[in-house]
Write a protein that binds this DNA or RNA. Structure first.
Lengths: 157, 157
DNA sequence: CATAATTAAATTGTGTGCAATTTATTTTAA
DNA sequence: TTAAAATAAATTGCACACAATTTAATTATG
């Protein structure tokens, strides 16, 4: 056992770096896509896309919000959010109104129809049941780690 | 303490279901987007988009592949994959050739330029260093749970 | 062996997602 | 107090992502 072993181990490690199985980014990307795919059909039944569903969840939880704050909460800028909100408005789920006190700001609020939709939406999360083979504890751990990772990304530099 | 408590607890639980913090789908969606955002700049320097990077990692690991198998590995269908592969071909990183034995199948292989790119790509995963505040153990746990969850979604029904 | 069924890519249409820019409004400062 | 800086949405351009359909080739079957 001379220097050969060390060198082999080092070069083996290096060549492993880019393998899909050793990456965090790949399962994260793929898993997020698969979950969105699973939600698509049940969401379609209540008239929402996935992104619209995320927006509606924020509004159901926090009520009326400025477009800016809404975007910060779900990590979307106006380039994505404005068209999504216009579609939700066209579907009759939200109102978009400029604040009189500051005409730059668009206030988003729920219509009656938007409020009522919450009841129908309560069964949506069950779409994952049976599709993701994790125990309750694993699920809680996963959610916790994702939220912690997400927290870290807020400090941009 | 009559039946009131039970009812309150039940209805409280119900109203919690759709809160962002209680959902798996939201941190998964948001975290995946943030990671892709972090990778964007370093990837741009070596001439790749995020999806192209995922494709190249598969090719670096497995070599020549049929478009179909490639798509299955990264959960993408031809609707997304065909244009991505055409761009990678135009950039000179891959070749696309119909199999003589079966003209339906497109075989994807790396060019010299595509092979050489692997060296430059080895530093890409470091982009996450400092952006995600997880210990090594947490990272391994997170990756493991994501891969396990991903595995479950393969059985569609 | 000829037609039906299957398979693999490609195409089409809709909906994000984001960087960069533009427009309108408000705040800051000279 | 007015020109400059900052802020919030909207717009533009490019790149996915996917369902649904189409096209071309191969395999299965009567």
């Amino acid at each position: 056992m001379g220097t050969g072993e060390k060198i082999m181990v080092k070069s083996a490690d290096k060549s492993e770096v880019l393998k899909l199985g050793n990456q965090l980014c790949f399962p994260l990307y793929a898993c997020a896509k698969e979950v969105i795919k699973i939600y698509r059909k049940p969401l379609e039944k209540i008239g929402l896309t996935y992104t619209q569903y995320i927006v509606m969840m924020v509004l159901w939880e926090f009520g009326k919000m400025k477009e800016k704050s809404l975007g910060e909460k779900i990590y979307l800028d106006s380039g994505t959010l404005t068209p999504v909100l216009k579609k939700l408005e066209k579907s009759g789920f939200v109102r978009r109104e400029r604040l009189k006190a500051d005409e730059r700001v668009v206030q988003i609020s729920l219509t009656d129809k938007g409020n009522k939709l919450k009841e129908k939406a309560k069964t949506i999360p069950q779409a994952l049941d049976g599709c993701i083979h994790l125990s309750y504890d694993e699920l809680v751990t996963l959610r916790g780690l994702l939220n912690k990772a997400l927290e870290g990304t807020k400090e941009k530099y």
